[in-house]
Amino acid sequence: MQPPARTGFHRPTLIIGVGLFALAAVTWFDARSMTIRANYGMGADAASYFVAAFLGVLGAGHLIAAMRPGIRADDTDWAGVGWVLLALVGLIGSIWMGAGFIIGSTLLFAFTARSFGRRALLADLLIGLALSTLIFLLFNKLLQLALPAGPLERLF
């Protein structure tokens, strides 16, 4: 996707470098706000300052590296990535709203399959439903593992 960065900065490297600086700043401020001190030796803030400094150095390294041409990211099927993210949203949403494990995993399965270009959404929903019901029964009934329950789980 990225045009070969012959002139100017290599954008991704630059963005990551700035991100590292931001992370370092957050860590530094977090360390400064710590209130509990160790009675003896070093406190919990020491490691934070160390990591913040480390991230800062790497951020500077990225800025320097950004002046040179960097890696060209491969072509990306953003629609596919979007479908996988939607699949994860489907699962998390189901758990959040109390729809349960089976519905959540069914959505996850079907949308992920869709992301790889399958168009048979109904068939995939059914396969996902069968798979997640099987998993639920196996773990809930046989192994006594409490997976998040929703209306479907209550049927068993």
Binding site: M97, G98, G100, P148, A149, G150, P151, R154
Partner: peptide, 10 residues
Amino acid sequence: MSFFTSRLAA
């Protein structure tokens, strides 16, 4: 466990 399901169970 959600509000809804716990209510149902209750």
